[in-house]
Amino acid sequence: MNARTEPGEEAGPAAARPPIVRELLLVAGLFLVYKFGRQLATGHTGEAFRNAHHVWDFERWARLPSELDVQDLLLHGDTLVKAANTYYATVHFPATLAFLVWLYLRRPAHYVWTRRVLAAVTGAALVGHLFFPLAPPRMLAGTGLIDTARVYGPSVYGPPQTDHLSNQFAAMPSLHFGWALMLAIGMIVATRSRWRWLWLLHPALTLLVIVGTANHYWLDAIVAGALLGLALTFIRPPGTRTSQVVPAPQEQAEPVKELVGAGR
């Protein structure tokens, strides 16, 4: 690799692009499994609200910043809060899809790595949603938080009793934040631009939005980040596998010198 070659541009089987039909079927299958799994977690209203009170009390005990302070910042103007609601409603899936498509076309090896990490995190999140249903803070009375999407628009959720397309009691972990953080990490690892660290603004802005709109607690993002960190520990990016150490030329020459010297 020369100095101008970016990661993922290497030739060879390791960088071969996976068959697109297989990838489309795989991604669609994972999405359907996740959507079906979310539906299995519905109907646990009482447990979801009990868990919500536990999470809220734990955050106060741990002295985490109040979600109310972040929401107050957004409520300084209608334009700001509407922009936050729009970001929450429209950026999550399109940004992730565009990220995967770009990796598939330009960095196929990194695409496979990223797809595996996202699948692992999403699968772990589904288990969490099944065993720990959690009502989002916008539903929790007594906190002072409001459902900004319902009040100011746009909203992607209907009333929980009639919303059959999503599980609104799946706040923890926050895949909004987990996927956004993986997008930033993936772009930082797969590119070499000196501006690539600016991709971290995406998860930072996502965190501000999901907390300020009262769709997630701080703890939802913390757990998502921990799951992502665990996945990245076991699913390593291309080019980071430990290779066998080859002795330096000088070290290889030493035994030869010793044999020559012994034969004199």
Rank of each mutant, 00 (worst) to 15 (best):
F177S: 02
P137Y: 02
G144C: 09
Y152D: 07
F49T: 07
F131I: 14
F99G: 00
G261E: 13
A16Y: 08
A83L: 05
L25F: 12
V245A: 14
L208H: 12
E10T: 12
T206D: 09
S166F: 02
P237T: 08
A125N: 10
L97R: 03
G43I: 03
E10Q: 15
A41N: 04
V211T: 09
S193Q: 11
A204H: 05
A15Y: 10
L205F: 12
A184R: 00
T86V: 07
A262I: 08
G153E: 10
G43K: 07
L165M: 13
L97D: 03
M1T: 14
L100D: 01
P247V: 05
H176S: 09
R38K: 14
R192G: 08
I222D: 10
V70D: 00
L207Y: 07
W199L: 03
Y104S: 08
G158A: 11
G225T: 06
G239C: 11
P247K: 09
T90A: 12
Q168S: 05
A125W: 01
R192W: 02
M182P: 00
Y34C: 05
R22T: 12
E258H: 13
N85L: 05
V260W: 15
F177R: 01
T162Y: 06
S193E: 10
G186N: 02
A14H: 13
G142P: 02
T114F: 00
G239P: 11
I185A: 11
W179Q: 06
R241D: 15
V189E: 05
P249K: 05
P18G: 09
H92C: 07
F31S: 12
P237Y: 02
A253L: 11
P65Q: 10
G229S: 12
T96G: 11
L26R: 09
A135R: 04
P203L: 05
K35F: 07
P13S: 07
G37N: 04
A41C: 09
Y152G: 03
P160R: 06
M182D: 00
T5R: 10
W195P: 07
E59Q: 09
G77M: 01
T240H: 13
D57M: 09
L126D: 02
L24Q: 06
Q250L: 14
Q168A: 04
A48H: 06
A11M: 13
